[in-house]
Design a protein around this nucleic acid. Structure first.
Lengths: 195, 195
DNA sequence: AAAGTATGTAACCTGTCGGTAACAAGCAAG
DNA sequence: CTTGCTTGTTACCGACAGGTTACATACTTT
């Protein structure tokens, strides 16, 4: 540990936020917790970031919590395969990232400017995809939005729940096998809908 | 307020738990909060209920947090109509009850014996219905469980989210109109699946 | 070398949490 | 009446939360 290195200190603080978020969630990110995990005096947290809210805002800004994979609808054979791929990616992303699960969980209990920003961004991204699917498939946009909501909503719910609960409707939401079953159901649904 | 009335005191404590749960959620149910809301000395909480955990267990036991409506599948024209009715009831129940929403939210962040018990019960009830539908419709049980999970999962998610967020995928999850759209999608899905 | 500024630490303050001890008042049975 | 049990209140304790003050280093600039 180099002494008197502000950049490194800020890094350590932000890293501490990351480990706390991943293990205990955003609710547990407090001044004292960050100070003790990072090994940095809590005064510096205030000095360099202003407040916990601003520190969290910075953390959210640094970590791009969104689908970074591009989904060019043109590259897919048809809308059905495109849809399946999008939701598959959504599930993978959420199952792989503890921080993202914690973010979604936090969002359910909180309302603040940082979260509002993330919501807007998600809303725009999602509606872009939904619009594209509606246009290409000729399906009513409300219907597409509805189907999309059913899937992403339940996937979000199950991924959060899985951290504390192993089984939901006989599906093992902790294991790959359970998720493969659900993916099969999603595929089945799309096969029925896009006839 | 009658003095020296244990029954009434216990009632007031449990009522306070109810109001705290409905307004702020289970996370906010602490000794001090219950004491101040009920106007009862916190010593009595420990004397009469032992601990906050036991108090919450009693509260959960008193309030029957489950579908009390019976759903005799025989009374419906067909499996499709039965399924639609069940999910309609699920949505109504969750949208009407703040306490139930808070319970579902709490469940996402906690794991304790009381919650484990509720989960078992929910699992049994749900699987009973899923089994019946699978038998009557001839659909694969994993498929029925999957569809059911997609719907109840997303409905749970959206009902919790709606307390802090007005719109999801352009659906107004705060208003009846948004939910009617989602119900139309669910009906549409069942129409496609049960051909 | 001196002055000023950036970096860091230790100690402290206030408030709230869960939990308990000590005591006061009523009631019931001998 | 007095002894004992139930019901209730007040005051307190230690742990920990967010937040600040005061002070000790070091580096930079003139």
């Amino acid at each position: 540990m180099t002494p008197k290195d502000r950049n490194q200190t800020e890094r350590r603080i932000l890293d501490a936020v990351g480990t706390i978020v991943e293990t205990e969630g955003f609710e547990a990110v407090g001044v004292n917790a960050v100070a003790s995990v990072s090994g940095v005096s809590k005064v510096l947290i205030y000095r360099y970031f202003g407040s916990i809210e601003q520190l969290l805002a910075k953390y959210l800004e640094d970590n791009d919590f969104w689908l970074n994979t591009e989904f060019p609808i043109q590259q897919y054979d048809n809308v059905k395969e495109f849809s399946k791929a999008v939701f598959r990616a959504y599930i993978d992303m959420l199952r792989k990232s503890p921080a993202l699960r914690k973010l979604y969980r936090w969002e359910l209990t909180t309302n603040n400017p940082a979260i509002a920003g993330l919501r807007e961004r998600r809303e725009r991204t999602a509606m872009d995809i939904i619009n594209a699917v509606s246009r290409q498939s000729g399906q009513d946009i409300d219907q597409v939005a509805g189907i999309s909501t059913l899937i992403t909503g339940s996937v979000s719910y199950l991924c959060i729940l899985a951290e504390n609960c192993a089984v939901y409707n006989s599906l093992e939401i902790n294991s790959d096998s359970g998720w493969e079953k659900l993916l099969k159901t999603i595929d089945f649904m799309f096969d029925k809908i896009f006839d």
